[in-house]
Design a protein around this nucleic acid. Structure first.
Length: 468
RNA sequence: GUCCCCAUCGUCUAGUGGCCUAGGACGUCGGCCUCUCACGCCGAUAACAGGGGUUCAAAUCCCCUUGGGGACGCCA
């Protein structure tokens, strides 16, 4: 039998990293078992749901390439089905009308709390046989005793006394269906067989199971993935830094790195750390999902991103790079940069950059014309004294005289001959050259730098030392 | 308060009773490589929360304690 999973976010904000991980696991569960992965937007809270949030969520899903099957289901469009389901429950005596006001219910809760009991509605309207009326809600007539148990795909056996549960509201006084009801009806109608969701839903699960049973529907498998913590072991929140998936994109992370990181946070496959999308699908199993909360570690994400930066096709990175460069350079300046130059620069930066942001920052020094390239004062002071300036200028002359191809090995041969003729160490030439060429004491290799810069630009930069 | 869940290096984790003097990865520290910085390679550092059981044998099973978290809405 083919399985069906789903991701069901409520569109009250961007997709955060925890939600993305839940979505990823659901997606992986479906893909790994040849099933279908569906997307449902739980937008029944009209106050807080926005189309912008929905769009942001879809955008994040696309960025991570978590493709879903079929059309997106909007829960708000399914009110009719929900209400029809509620009606069948009323007819079968599994639900009842309740006339208690929110204030009355709150008072019951207060009292229960004061008596050391679990705060809940006391069921006083259960047997009153009320019908519809203004201000009335429909409640589920839950079992008073017994326990509801299920085997959680990640947490194992979970059992709750039915007495702990209260008669949840199914239909609000304004006639709208509530979350627990809507989820069950939707999941059933969508054919969902496996529900993987956040830990915060464990407490809802027994209530939902009871609803499935009341409807006489097959109960799906449930699994609750532990949440993500900040470095202080508190629930990950804004004060810990970036939360939104798209913020990671803006910071220069690659989607495959974020996916790999998220997958390994709370899931493992032996000692393997690096997983391609295909490997993830091949290896994924809920068996290996961890059951304790995990701390989000930006450093490990960075390391992974660095790994994927090295692996990536230069052409792809170069295309991505242009966008990040717009933060480093003037638009006009950037417009003049040929894509071919970006593609030549990218491989030099790939082993050095952890993120696209890093890369853009480093790339800048290859892309601006000599007069506009700033010098790092400290580097100049350290490596470009008068004697070294002369050395650089002499090298420039030698470079100009060099007629052969402008490839790394030719340039290296030239430099070696140059130092040999003067009987100086190569090192004595390297740093002055680097500072003259790049303005800094840190850069990619000298010869690859010159090759990418080209003869003309290299000479311009070297001879600029006279201005110092 | 009540209920539910969780607990291996700083962090992510391997571990499903003997292969564990606890493995890998990130980080950190050292070294090698080297034209700088990275990359890469090599090495080091560091953990079974505590206490009781069960067993020939426990990181692994049970109980308690402690510590964390979650839930208790006419939100989702």
């Amino acid at each position: 039998m083919s399985i069906v999973t789903r991701f069901a976010p409520s569109p009250t904000g961007f997709l955060h990293i925890g939600g993305a991980r839940t979505a990823l696991f659901s997606w992986l569960l479906a893909r790994s078992r040849g099933g279908r992965f569906l997307l449902r937007i739980e937008d029944t809270d009209r106050e807080r749901s926005t189309p912008e949030a929905t769009e942001a969520i879809l955008q994040s899903m696309r960025w991570l390439d978590l493709e879903w099957e079929g059309e997106v289901v909007y829960q708000s469009a399914r009110a009719e089905a929900h209400n029809a389901a509620i009606d069948t429950l009323i007819e079968s005596g599994r639900a009842y009308w309740c006339s208690c006001s929110p204030e009355e219910v709150e008072a019951m809760r207060e009292q229960a709390r004061a008596e050391g009991r679990k705060p809940k509605y006391d069921g006083r309207c259960r047997e009153r046989g009320l019908g519809p009326g203004p201000g009335r809600v429909v409640r589920f007539k839950g079992p008073l005793e017994g326990t509801t148990a299920y085997k959680d795909m990640v947490k194992g056996a979970i059992a709750v006394d039915n007495a702990e549960l209260d008669d949840m509201i199914l239909r609000r006084s304004d006639g709208s269906p509530t979350y627990n009801l809507a989820v069950v009806v939707d999941d059933h109608d969508m054919g969902v067989t496996h529900v993987l969701r956040g830990d915060d839903h464990v407490a809802n699960t027994p209530k939902q199971i009871l609803l499935y049973q009341a409807f006489g529907w097959p109960v799906p498998e449930f699994g609750h993935v532990p949440m993500i913590l900040g470095p202080d072991k508190k629930k990950l929140s804004k004060r810990h830094g970036a939360l939104s998936v798209m913020e990671y994109e803006k910071m220069g992370y690659l989607p495959e790195a974020v996916m790999n990181y998220l997958a390994r946070l709370g899931w493992s496959h032996g000692d393997q750390e690096i997983f391609s999308r295909e490997e993830l699908i091949a290896c994924f199993s809920t068996e290996n999902l961890g059951n304790s909360p995990a701390v989000f570690d930006t450093q490990k994400l960075e390391w992974l991103n660095g790994h994927y930066m090295k692996q990536a096709e230069p052409v792809r990175l170069a295309a991505l790079l242009r966008e990040f460069l717009s933060r480093e350079m003037e638009p006009a300046e950037l417009e003049d940069v040929p894509q071919a130059l970006l593609e030549a620069v990218t491989p030099l930066l790939q082993p050095r950059a952890k993120t696209l942001t890093d890369m853009a920052e480093m790339a800048r020094l290859f892309l601006v014309d000599a007069p506009f390239l700033p010098f790092d004062e400290k580097a100049v002071a350290q490596h470009l004294g008068e004697a070294n300036k002369t050395l650089v200028l002499e090298f420039a002359d030698a470079l100009e005289a060099h007629a052969g191809p402008f490839e790394e090995q030719d340039l290296e041969a030239l430099a070696q001959a140059f130092v040999a003729a003067r009987n100086i160490k190569f090192k004595a030439l390297a740093q002055p050259l680097r500072v003259a060429l790049t303005g800094r004491s840190v850069s990619p290799g000298l010869f690859e730098t010159m090759r990418v810069l080209g003869k003309e630009q290299s000479l311009k930069r070297l001879r600029r030392v006279t201005e110092l």
